[in-house]
Amino acid sequence: MNHLNKTIALLLALVFAMSFLLCSCAEKEEEPVSRDLFAMDTYMTVTAYGKHAEKAVDEAVRELNRLDALLSTGKEASEVAALNKNGGGDLSKDTNTLLKAALELYKSTGHVFDITIYPVMKLWGFTDQNYKVPAKEDLAEALQLVDAGALDYDADAKTVAFEKEGVAVDFGGIAKGYASSRVIEIFREQGVTSGIVNLGGNVQTLGQKPDGTDWRIGIQDPEDEDKMLGVVTNHDKAIITSGGYERNFEEDGVVYHHIIDPETGYPADSGLTSVTIVSEDGTLADGLSTSLFIMGKAKAVNYWQKHFKEFDMVLCCDDGTLVVTEGIREAFSPADEDATVEYIE
């Protein structure tokens, strides 16, 4: 070996030694890896910690884009758009899982959660932001099409057929919850032990924060954008809030929001201003947040008492009272110390 080669070799060795030294130092501090994207008509942020974070977050973003392309009612190439156009068809793994979950919710909520509400949503313009109050007769006609019970679903063959012309489904009520659960699954598969997903305000956590404490998730005050109702400390949970404040429009001095009661075809007016569900199951949390909002306090409490093992909730009533269930009594702290809080056992 001559001198030039030796010099280069020495240089390389030095640099490698240094890079390892610096890498090992840097590995100790857990820097979050975070990505944001626009999908499912919302702004999403996925964050993971630890050495597998980079890959996990990339996978998560890919999955979110895939689900968006699959489930979007507005994209002609999506599976859901094809189902609606053809009056049914074969179901992929994801839509099959979603349909199964949707029908279970339909049953357990006493038909309040209904994915066939889509034609009514369209009439109100909530699907394309062409908001308008529909004519009574149009609404009555569209309501005729709303009946998830009439879907001819074959779980073994993984097919669905819509009985009537004009029936259309939209997984929007559970899609984001399903998506956040999928992201958490991907995080787990990739060896991530700490992470958080925020899909336009639908939050799901994995493990605890890197410092070993629980995540602190604020709950939006439905009356004031700049305030919070309170904070839920948690780990490994989906925290999903629904309320009329999220999406609405005004016509002739009346505010119409996007949570439509499939019974009446009009925005639900149940005395609740927001419902927050805390559950390990993101899909369930998403579906229940709107369903219990439609049901109102009494029915929601009743529902919880039958299903208390599956979730916990915070209801915000229009008089400002908060209703908190037993499972998160300790974990929930109201922002306003003077707020009336009712605990349900």
């Binding site: 030796k6 010099t7 030095l14």
Partner: peptide, 16 residues
């Protein structure tokens, strides 16, 4: 680093 490497580079250049 450059100072460390300098003598070696000089030597290498001379050897050529």
């Amino acid at each position: 680093l450059a100072k460390l490497l300098m003598p070696r580079v000089q030597k290498a250049l001379e050897s050529y």
